[in-house]
Design a binder for these strands. Structure first.
Lengths: 152, 152
DNA sequence: ATTGAAAAGAGGTACTA
DNA sequence: TAGTACCTCTTTTCAAT
């Protein structure tokens, strides 16, 4: 599937606000409602749009602490890597997990209520994983920008 | 505003899928449609729900490279910090920007098409900022988990 | 805050060109 | 592939509790 300029415009708009009606989208892109409907349906069916979600205010819901953890593993066999990825993905505190090129193995973005909750998470969940060698954590002082919008 | 268990359940559900109809939400939480409607409206009005967005498939839309950059500034006056935050927030490639506690000043999550696009971004946008002293970048090999859902 | 019901609006389908 | 008409479902509003 090749995305034309109309598809890209749709994706840009829906990344910012997915509640815009097809009528409004049709108006803005100078197309009919049916055409927009068809295109959005396809973009969802083909997986370009993975999901539509509500983004919450982190402070208001009491998620006061964001931290980044650099994880070093004990070994780098496929089995150890897969097991770590599998285990860590289950922790709801871990919102993002990336395998990295360079000096450490994984980068985690972790959301907890406060430092105490982070400490609990580290001691009883992350550090307990048998594949983990060391964890180096950096804490966020303030959030300047937090976007889900890809620059397409 | 105090969130009760029903509000929390609503927020949990809508963080996963914001297209669930009020009818379905009402059914699952054993409330009337109007009650659900009223609660969701309030959660939006009070800012608990910041926005509803479409989440795209990063690979499918050609955002092939994610990188984390640790930025060290030349000075730490309020003016330098504010100016850097202001400038960097304007770059669409920078999806997240956090001021950090610890050894470096800012952590950026950057999305680009490929290494060439990253290189362009670094040379002509990020490194050009007058507040920036050094930038240390780590590249993502693979994405294990990428969530917008806060563990509430 | 919650309800039930009515009105307004949006989504979805079938057919047309 | 895009447009029109039609039907269905959902959202929104309201009076009342």
């Amino acid at each position: 599937m090749n995305l034309d300029e109309t598809d890209l415009k749709l994706l840009r708009l829906l990344q910012v606000d997915a509640t815009i009606s097809n009528k409004e989208l049709a108006h803005r892109l100078h197309k009919s409602i049916a055409a927009i409907h068809e295109r959005v349906k396809k973009l969802k069916a083909k997986g370009y749009i993975k999901k539509v979600v509500a983004i919450l205010d982190r402070q208001k819901i009491g998620m006061g602490l964001i931290s980044f953890s650099q994880v070093f593993l004990k070994a780098h066999t496929a089995e150890v890597l897969n097991q770590f990825e599998h285990d860590v993905a289950k922790f709801p505190e871990v919102m993002e997990c990336y395998q990295m090129a360079g000096s450490y193995d994984f980068m985690l973005r972790i959301a907890t209520k406060d430092m105490e909750a982070y400490h609990e998470f580290l001691r009883h969940k992350l550090a307990v994983l048998p594949q983990v060698n060391t964890v180096q954590t950096y804490f966020v002082l303030s959030e300047t920008k937090s976007e889900t919008l890809y620059p397409i």
